[in-house]
C-alpha cells in the first residue's frame, strides 16, 4: 500500500499518528538479544558458523561474533530467509564492527570471543537501529566494559528526490511503511556525541538533504541513549532493592560517570 505523503503535509501527522520528531515508545519492532561468552576461540567452529566477527582493541582484545536470526513470522509476508542472505550478513558485519569501536576488548584475552545472538521476533522498520540498540543494551547488562552506549536511530525525508523541496521535514524513527516510501538513513553514534560509528543509507536522496537527516538522526540517538541509560539504572535500582547486589558496590560504580 503506497504511503500517502500528501496527507502528511496537511495534518503534519504520520500514518501512526506521530509528529515528525516523535520516537515510538515501543513500536512493533521486537528484538531479543543473548550474549554468551567470552569463550575461548574455537577454530573449527569459526569456519562453519555464519556469524560475522570483528576484533576489538586493534586485534589485542576479544573478538565479537554477531549472528542475526530473523524469525519467519517477523514480517507480514512470511518469507524464508536463507542463512547466507547477504543483507543479513552485511548487517551482522556493521553491528560487529560498530560495537568493536565501543567495547573495551582488552579486558579479555585476544583469543576469546563474545557471541552476540540477535533474534528478530517482529519487524516494523528501523531494523538495523533496533538491532544495534538491543545489542548495546545487552552488552551493558552483561557487564562487558564499554566506553559508551552505541546507539542508533533512523531518519527519513518527506519529499521525494525529484522535488527540490528544501523545506521538507525530516522524520525520525521510521516504520516499515515509511521506509518503503521515503529515503532514509540509519545512523549509529557513540553515546550522546556527534561521532558517527556506522551510517547506512540505501535509498536515493539529494545531497542537500543529508545534513538535515543526519542531524535529526543524531538527536534521535541522544534520546535513545538517555532511554537506554534509564533502563539500565532502573534495573540496577531493582537489583539493589532485591538484594542481588550490595548497595556500596553500585554507588561506587555509579559515581564513576
Amino acid at each position: 500500500m503506497p504511503l500517502d505523503t500528501s496527507t502528511y503535509n496537511l495534518a503534519l501527522l504520520r500514518v501512526d499518528g506521530r509528529r515528525w520528531n516523535e520516537l515510538r515508545q515501543q513500536g512493533n519492532t521486537k528484538i531479543q538479544c543473548i550474549i554468551t561468552g567470552p569463550n575461548e576461540r574455537d577454530a573449527s567452529k569459526n569456519t562453519s558458523s555464519s556469524a560475522s566477527t570483528a576484533p576489538t582493541a586493534g586485534g589485542a582484545g576479544a573478538t565479537l561474533a554477531v549472528s542475526i536470526m530473523i524469525a519467519p513470522f517477523a514480517t507480514v509476508d512470511r518469507k524464508r530467509r536463507g542463512r547466507n542472505d547477504k543483507r543479513v550478513q552485511e548487517m551482522q558485519t556493521t553491528i560487529a564492527c560498530g560495537l568493536a569501536a565501543a567495547v573495551q576488548g582488552q579486558a579479555y584475552g585476544p583469543r576469546s570471543t563474545i557471541h552476540i545472538a540477535l533474534n528478530v521476533l517482529s519487524q516494523d522498520g528501523s531494523l538495523l537501529a533496533g538491532l544495534i540498540n538491543a545489542a548495546s543494551l545487552a552488552l551493558v547488562d552483561a557487564g562487558v566494559p564499554m566506553t559508551d552506549y552505541l546507539v542508533a536511530c533512523t531518519a527519513g525525508s518527506t519529499s521525494s528526490y525529484a522535488a527540490a523541496d528544501e523545506a521538507a521535514d525530516p522524520l525520525l524513527d521510521l516504520n516499515t511503511q515509511e521506509e518503503q516510501e521515503l529515503p532514509f538513513l540509519t545512523l549509529a553514534t557513540l553515546g550522546a556525541t556527534d561521532k558517527v560509528v556506522a551510517m547506512v543509507c540505501e535509498s536515493r536522496v539529494q545531497l542537500t538533504r543529508l545534513e538535515g537527516m543526519m542531524a535529526t538522526a543524531a538527536d534521535g540517538c541522544k534520546a535513545a541513549r538517555d532511554f537506554l541509560d534509564g533502563v539500565v539504572r532502573d534495573k540496577g535500582e531493582l537489583m539493589v532493592q532485591e538484594g542481588a547486589i550490595g548497595r556500596g558496590e553500585v554507588v561506587s560504580s555509579m559515581d564513576l560517570d
Binding site: 558485519t93 564492527c97 560498530g98 569501536a101 549509529a188 553514534t189 557513540l190 561521532k195 536522496v205 539529494q206
Partner: peptide
C-alpha cells in the same frame, strides 16, 4: 546530479558527523 544512491560506513572507529558531510 548530486543524488546520493547509498552511504555505507560499516562500523569501525567513530568519525565526526561534520567530516562525513
Amino acid at each position: 546530479h548530486g543524488e546520493i544512491c547509498q552511504v555505507a560506513k560499516p562500523g569501525g572507529a567513530p568519525v565526526e558527523a561534520v567530516t562525513v558531510l
